[in-house]
Design a protein around this nucleic acid. Structure first.
Length: 280
DNA sequence: TGTTAGTCAATAAC
DNA sequence: GTTATTGACTAACA
């Protein structure tokens, strides 16, 4: 008796054929495929083709492809010649299709949601951060855990990102990456999300040496901070001479003054993407 | 060489 | 205990 064929047998002949069945598909992909693929797949499943009858299925498929192409060309021609005196419904030979229509994107490399995707064309970072913030809160997932296991970053970085999302189109790919990671995580099933939270994204190095003593963080005195803040309100980007002067007056290192203005410029930048507006 | 963007990590605030 | 803030480090870039 003939061996019943499975999907891989047909895919060997035409790798794009059963893309649909290969584990999920996105809306864009679904819109791009001819309708007959899904119907044909069901038909194939119902009739259980064998090695001997494989050609029947493929012949049917190719015939339907030809019909679909002919219909497409006819439709395109009807649109193209509308109002130019051409008789509507003129059948054009399928061979001319390639020259007239853009090539369909090959489907075999199309990414699915569960995979590590390339950066999206656009992500609404404000809405995304709102969703992640609520998701973590509702599920009782600490920011530190999420940051470490899903993003490979620290809690502080995550908190800052969630509270002050940057507009997607104003970031470079390196900046977009953290939003893409959150976006991808949200696209997973609950089980998959939880599985990710079980281990750090980046394996920590095992150090044999004694741990380095924690570095004490410098904090500006109230007077230094107030003075710097009011100077920043007057001039966001003072010249080097002014900054040296400020450093001397406040008994600070020039690098500390430089860093202050650098951070202040960055953190006071108006992005038009105010998270509070979404939260409230 | 100076600036920017992404980030860490200490610690303040809740 | 968790989240928010912030001084500083680093790589990329002009």
């Amino acid at each position: 008796m003939d061996r019943l064929l499975d999907d891989t047998d047909f895919m060997a002949e035409d790798p794009t054929l059963f893309e649909l069945n290969a584990g999920g598909y996105d809306g864009e992909y679904y819109q791009n495929i001819p309708d007959f693929e899904l119907d044909d797949y069901n038909h194939y499943k119902e009739n259980e083709y064998t090695e001997d009858t494989r050609h029947l299925f493929l012949d049917e498929k190719h015939e339907m492809e030809r019909r679909w192409e002919a219909e497409l060309v006819r439709d395109l021609d009807a649109i193209y010649h509308r109002g130019r005196g051409t008789v509507a419904g003129t059948v054009v030979e399928p061979e001319s299709l390639e020259a007239r229509t853009p090539k369909k994107e090959p489907t075999k490399n199309r990414k699915r949601p569960a995979e590590t995707t390339p950066l999206s064309e656009y992500i609404d970072t404000c809405q995304l951060c709102h969703n992640i913030y609520n998701e973590l809160k509702n599920a009782g997932i600490p920011q530190a855990l999420f940051a470490k296991c899903v993003l490979g970053r620290t809690q502080g970085t995550l908190s800052d990102t969630l509270k002050k999302p940057k507009p997607w189109n104003e970031m470079k790919p390196s900046g977009q990456k953290i939003y893409q990671q959150m976006y991808d995580w949200l696209a997973l099933s609950v089980d998959e999300r939880m599985a990710m939270l079980k281990e750090p994204l980046v394996k920590e190095e095992v150090k044999n040496d004694a741990p380095e003593p924690t570095k004490k963080r410098f904090v500006f005195s109230e007077m230094q901070k107030n003075t710097l803040d009011s100077l920043f309100k007057q001039e966001r980007n003072p010249d080097q001479e002014t900054k040296v002067d400020i450093a001397q007056q406040l008994n600070l290192d020039i690098s500390q003054v430089n860093t202050y203005f650098m951070n202040a410029r960055r953190r006071n930048r108006i992005t038009g993407n105010d998270f509070k507006k979404v939260i409230e």
